[in-house]
Design a protein around this nucleic acid. Structure first.
Length: 922
RNA sequence: GCGGGUGUGGCGGAAUUGGUAGACGUGCUAGACUUAGGAUCUAGUGCCGCAAGGCGUGGGGGUUCGAGUCCCUUCACCCGCACCA
């Protein structure tokens, strides 16, 4: 073996470490570029080949940008708070910090092996007290802020307090809970301190409130909507139920509109933008008040179709609606109570699966705002408490859900659509004209909507309103391994610690809830807390996404003890120019970090309001599982091609025992005791052939391919090239080791190009030929273009073509090899450093400039014209470059092959596109 | 149901604005060379056909001198959301 990659890679990794090659600092003389990976959660399983895919792409891009003269920030760290480590702690008693450190060390080893250009002096860990004290600091700022709707930004709460002192809240236009009563300046002054605090809580961006939350009993904590998939917890797949609890929340809803409009300023995939838009779920409509027949208060309903107001047959409240109690007539009491209790017991999951129509009549009536007629008030599960006002005006002729409800309970349906039959289905399209609707008669839907809104607002019957599906983000978790809150209580009123005080996670005897069901932190005794104020400390912790919502800022100033990030640093490094990570964070991390960024921007701590300017979502690398086939009730395994003659059970086999689908019998027998005397029915060639399938990599499928083995066998440069060579970055693709040899051979071929048969470095000082230059410059151009448009896979082919051509040309000219080495270095940094050094350079190839493309080398003497007949290419012909259109036509028409394909006919038309193609129409 | 995405050889994939479909790599078939290697080199390899020729980018239709690429329609698979009023 001539190309000793193991020694070379070790040598350069040591060199980079010793020389701090990848350390960067602010340098205003250079243009900055910020390339960021989504930082990993350090799990116990280590990295598999799927993880580094995005890291390799971003590393290539970072190295490339550096060679183009940019000052590149390319950091890495760990999202090290989280559930799995805590679950492990519960099982083993090992402190999560200890397990986290082990896992991080393992990750670091794996990452170092791959030769990344991270500036490790900026490493961060979200579970490090020096990091999370700044997460707590941001929470303090959120607590200390409210959202001013007029100025459309977050403002310090002191401004609101001074408003209250002057005018009470009568003129206040701020995002808050709807239920706040009005008070005057003198009311405010007369409130006790505690009462004032409680009122302010309704305005703060971080606030404590009693809300319906998703409670997961199995995990012992509440979960955010984005942590639930198909009604089950994302982690572990446990059932989730609705529970009313006092929780910290963040008022993300105040930012709903900006979170939508901001999407227009960033380069993300349409699908992620759409997912976020749908998640926020903006809808324009109108809120309409229905007076009640026997009561003084009103029911507020939200609708996007005010044009259907005359089609209202009844009103439906959600079972959790606050007026349910009041409106339930004694005669209906038992029915309603029974119905509501049943609804309460249903989990998210149950509600999702069971879509049958259910409901109950309250016995009360509302008054239609225009007709004055009585409208029955029902309760129905299909109305969600959390959306809109938790009440709907039911228009069965225009809404299928209302139609189903009416149909089920035998309610007569009012039709308000001209010439439309609603006896079988509701009419949900917007193409009909309205009828039976007083002043709306004869209007199109669009016109009717506008007129209805006008009439409703004019009559004081309601108000135009924008509704969002997005809920405020529940920010408490009843667990141990997360950021503690910088919060203490006096009585039931929460207070924030002073700016210079931060809470460290206190030690606890067990990582489990207390016997009274309080979170694990409640186990800590007073002396265990580094800070203890008031009557008690907050015992909830922050959710997993707290630390990851701002980490990209900390990298800019990772070791600052005075601030979370000095403004001069965030002003210099600015937005993340390229963010690479998985699409699975579409609504969690990516929405929350946008929210925090906007907040920090509002408060003047940073100067930009979107964190990630451009994002690429890498696709998953799927595993290739292997199978053996055991004959039923025996210890005999039959080869894949013969399995059909037997009744067999398919069993996973560890892919490390399988090469090219051939099973290593010895390794298999040694795998498990039960297989040690296994018998085999072989294929005709005497080998055992395994079956295979492409699926997600997982431990239980024994199909996990770690980068470690590959780095050992082929080297990091090969792994880097191969991961890129697999296919487009964004696409899902199966992992298949077979192709790795090809990429490895390419590096060997490059090595051979500049070494003689004795493995001595050998380079020619001659002036390169025209052909040599052409090959190099073609490569420079293509590599540059492809990297710029993030087409990382095609670049590898370009390298291969270049080395193939140079080999054919027997070209080892210094000038050409030097140029190619720099071009290659972002993909294969180790071998490039080695060759670069052998070329006599004293500094690292990472400081070399990307070669300039010179188009003059690409000018051709001849053009090879494909000649087609009726669009089908038949032959090619080389003609001088400068030949004109007419000359080409003449030349082609007298060619013998043309005559052959014309078969004596006259061409109807001859199309000549100079320098490209000739097409003859017969 | 709504929104987004993907369909190209045995396999991974290439084809930037419509202009030689299958680059590059694997795999396969022959052969050469050896201090038998995960080596190197040569030739072949989309499908049908001895050939001439025909057919080919999920299917059908269209625009065009020319369509993987543009338009219409349809199918399959993947992802997200899903009683959102």
């Amino acid at each position: 073996m001539q190309y000793k990659f193991q020694a070379i890679e070790k040598k350069w990794q040591d060199y980079w470490r010793k020389n701090e090659t990848y350390k960067v600092s602010k340098d205003t003389s250079k243009e900055k570029y910020y390339v960021l990976d989504m930082f990993p959660y350090p799990s116990g399983a280590g990295l598999h080949v799927g993880h580094p895919l995005g890291y390799i792409a971003s590393d290539i891009f970072a190295r490339y940008k550096r060679s183009k003269g940019f000052n590149v920030l390319h950091p890495m760290g760990y999202d090290s708070f989280g559930l799995p480590t805590e679950q492990y702690a519960i099982q083993t008693g090992i402190h999560p910090a200890t397990a986290t450190k082990q896992n991080i060390d393992r990750y670091r080893n794996q990452l170092d092996q791959i030769g990344f250009s991270y500036d490790w002096s900026r490493e961060i860990q979200t579970s490090d007290p020096n990091y999370y004290k700044w997460t707590q600091w941001i929470f303090k700022q959120l607590f200390d802020s409210y959202y001013c709707i007029e100025r459309d930004k977050a403002i310090q709460i002191s401004a609101l307090i001074s408003d209250f002192e002057k005018t009470g809240n009568t003129k206040t236009n701020a995002a808050c809970d709807d239920s706040i009563p009005q008070f005057s300046a003198s009311d405010w002054k007369n409130f006790s301190k505690e009462e004032q605090e409680k009122i302010l809580l309704n305005y703060r961006l971080a606030f404590l409130s009693e809300t319906w939350v998703n409670w997961c009993e199995e995990l012992g904590t509440v979960l955010a909507n984005d942590e639930i998939k198909e009604g089950l917890s994302e982690r572990g797949g446990h059932p989730v139920e609705q529970k009313l609890m006092q929780q910290w929340s963040l008022r993300i809803t105040a930012y709903a509109d900006r979170l939508i409009s901001g999407l227009e300023t960033i380069e993300w995939s349409e699908s992620i933008k759409d997912i976020q838009k749908n998640w926020i779920g903006k809808s324009k409509g109108v809120s309409i008040f229905f007076n009640l027949e026997n009561f003084n208060n009103k029911i507020d309903v939200f609708t996007t179709r005010p044009d259907t107001i005359f089609g209202v047959n009844f009103i439906v409240l959600s079972p959790e609606h606050p007026l349910v109690d009041q409106l339930t007539m004694p005669s209906q009491k038992s029915n309603v109570v029974e119905y509501i209790n049943k609804a309460k017991l249903k989990s998210e999951r149950d509600r999702e699966i069971d879509k049958s129509v259910t409901g109950v009549f309250t016995g009360s009536f509302a008054i239609h705002p225009f007709t004055g007629k009585k409208v029955a008030i029902w309760i129905g599960e299909y109305v969600l408490a959390a959306y809109g006002t938790g009440a709907v005006m039911a228009v069965p002729s225009g809404d299928q859900r209302d139609w189903n409800f009416a149909n089920h309970f035998g309610i007569k349906i009012l039709n308000i659509f001209k010439d439309i039959d609603v006896s079988e289905n509701a009419y949900e399209d917007k193409n009909a004209s309205i009828t039976n609707s007083d002043f709306l008669n004869g209007l199109s839907v669009k016109k009717a909507i506008n007129l209805a809104i006008y009439k409703i607002e004019e009559g004081g019957l309601g108000k135009g309103k924008i509704n969002y599906r997005l809920r405020d983000a529940v920010f408490s978790r009843q667990r141990y391994w997360g950021e503690p809150f910088p919060v203490f209580y006096k009585g039931n009123v929460p207070y924030i610690l002073d700016d210079n005080k931060n809470v460290m996670l206190p030690p606890v005897d067990k990582y489990l809830p207390t016997s009274s069901g309080k979170p694990p932190l409640a186990r800590a005794k007073k002396k265990d807390w580094n800070v203890y104020e008031g009557d008690r400390m907050e015992t909830n912790i922050m959710p997993g996404w707290a630390g990851s919502s701002w980490y990209f800022l900390r990298y800019m100033d990772a070791n600052n003890d005075e601030e979370f990030c000095a403004k001069e640093n965030s002003d210099y490094w600015g937005q993340v120019d390229l963010y690479i990570g998985g699409a699975e964070h579409a609504v969690g991390h990516l929405l929350y970090s946008r929210f925090w960024t906007k907040f920090l921007f509002d408060r003047g701590f940073i100067s930009f309001d979107e964190p990630f300017k451009k994002m690429i979502n890498q696709g998953m690398i799927l595993g290739r599982s292997s199978f053996v086939y055991r004959v039923k009730d025996s210890n005999t395994f039959v080869s894949f091609d013969k399995r059909k003659s037997y009744e067999t059970t398919r069993l996973y086999v560890d892919i490390s025992f399988v090469e090219n689908d051939i099973l290593d019998i010895e390794a298999f027998r040694n795998w498990r005791a039960e297989y040690c005397d296994a018998e085999f029915v072989f294929s005709d060639d005497g080998k055992y052939l395994c079956g295979h399938e492409v699926e997600k990599m997982s431990k239980s499928k024994y199909n996990v391919q770690t980068p470690d083995d590959l780095v050992e066998d082929f080297g990091a440069d090969t792994l880097r090239l191969y991961e890129m060579f697999l296919g487009p970055l964004e696409q899902f693709k199966p992992w298949d080791v077979k192709g790795i040899n090809g990429v490895h051979n390419f590096l060997r071929k490059f090595w051979r190009l500049v070494h003689d048969s004795e493995n001595n470095f050998s380079i020619s000082e001659e002036k390169p030929s025209k052909e040599n230059y052409k090959t190099l410059h073609k490569t420079i151009k293509k590599v540059e273009e492809e990297i710029e448009r993030h087409s990382f896979n095609t670049v590898v082919s370009t390298f291969m073509i270049c080395v193939n051509e140079l080999t054919d040309q027997k070209c080892n000219n210094r000038e050409i090899i030097s140029g190619f080495t720099v071009v290659l270095s972002s993909y294969a940094p180790h071998i490039s450093e080695e060759i670069w050094q052998k070329l006599g350079n004293k500094t690292s190839v990472t400081s070399a400039s990307f070669p300039n493309f010179n188009s003059s080398y690409l000018i051709e003497d001849e053009i090879t014209y494909p000649v087609s007949f009726n669009g089908k290419t038949r032959f090619t012909i080389a003609l001088p470059f400068e030949m004109t259109k007419d000359e080409v036509e003449i030349e082609i028409m007298k060619h013998e092959k043309t005559l052959h394909y014309l078969k004596g006919k006259l061409p109807k038309k001859v199309i000549v596109v100079p320098k490209r193609i000739v097409n003859i129409v017969i």
